[in-house]
Nucleic acid binder design. Sequence first.
DNA 1: TATTGTTATACTCTATAACTATA
DNA 2: TATAGTTATAGAGTATAACAATA
Lengths: 174, 174
Amino acid sequence: MLSLKNAHLSSGDPMKTVIKEPEPEMGVSHVSDETLRAFVGYHMKRAFNVVQTDLARTLKPFDLRMLTYTALVLIVDNPGLRQSQLADAMDVERPNLVVIIDELERRELIVRDRVPTDRRAYALKATLAGRQLCEKAVAAVTAHEQRLLENMDATTRDTVIAAMQLIQKSLSKG
Amino acid sequence: MLSLKNAHLSSGDPMKTVIKEPEPEMGVSHVSDETLRAFVGYHMKRAFNVVQTDLARTLKPFDLRMLTYTALVLIVDNPGLRQSQLADAMDVERPNLVVIIDELERRELIVRDRVPTDRRAYALKATLAGRQLCEKAVAAVTAHEQRLLENMDATTRDTVIAAMQLIQKSLSKG
DNA sequence: TATTGTTATACTCTATAACTATA
DNA sequence: TATAGTTATAGAGTATAACAATA
């Protein structure tokens, strides 16, 4: 919430908190976001930002980012996947996937196997090290997700997931 | 949905659609995202990406981006706002806000007024042109939002907004 | 001709350290 | 000394055009 970011509302009982405000007669002491608050997209951006930040922190010990993590999981779960399929599945452009795959290959978490029947393509496969790192990372992300949802009931969670999928469907045809 | 991105599932009746699949015996014809699908964050990222893209397209005619739009709306709604308050409200770092304000000022949509009682600070105010552009942009974003929510009932919408706020609260203290 | 992977490139968003001028 | 705004910089995500090898 925007309003909560203001010092006098940020934590504890506001009535008990005495904080110098920057000349309330001069500027604004309370930032109104009335217009923006009406939009779901606004709340999605703010929520996604904190999720992104927390996930990055979660994956840091494994030297993974959201994108390298997602790619690794999908390759582990789909041995033989091709780069174009992976790019499609991840909703990233083919050129942007190349550096992600480069990094995973350099760290020997996956291999690029040539496809004999189509020498243009690569079949992506996780190595043992890749599968092991993936397993640990998934466990960490599961813990991150539990933090994320600690005060949310299962019904709400399912509603949110369904809503996110609906939004994707509504806009991807526009 | 990931699965929907595969050609044989992408549109229409799958049974009626005959499409060449890339050697189903060799690679994978259906990308399974079982592991990732379990995470709310995964769905949020995908949904937010399409929202972001559609919003960018929506704001393009006004030469605004999500951040310049948000800043403009907040300044219009909070005349006299200072940059540090705005940065706080927008959840962006102070240095990153500078270029946003620079751009809005260069386009004469806002002005930086010196605060007489604190010569370090600026009071941000929208110009007439700024307020007029803002009004049009808000209308366009409202239409974008309606596209976003065209198949979502109001209850679900409210649930999603509450959930986004809850997620922010859960993680921002970590 | 079309597709797979690639290179190069550009724009945006995010994050940090360090500076200046005020307080 | 602390704060408001600034500069510089770096990392990451996203998007497009154009190329070589192959189909």
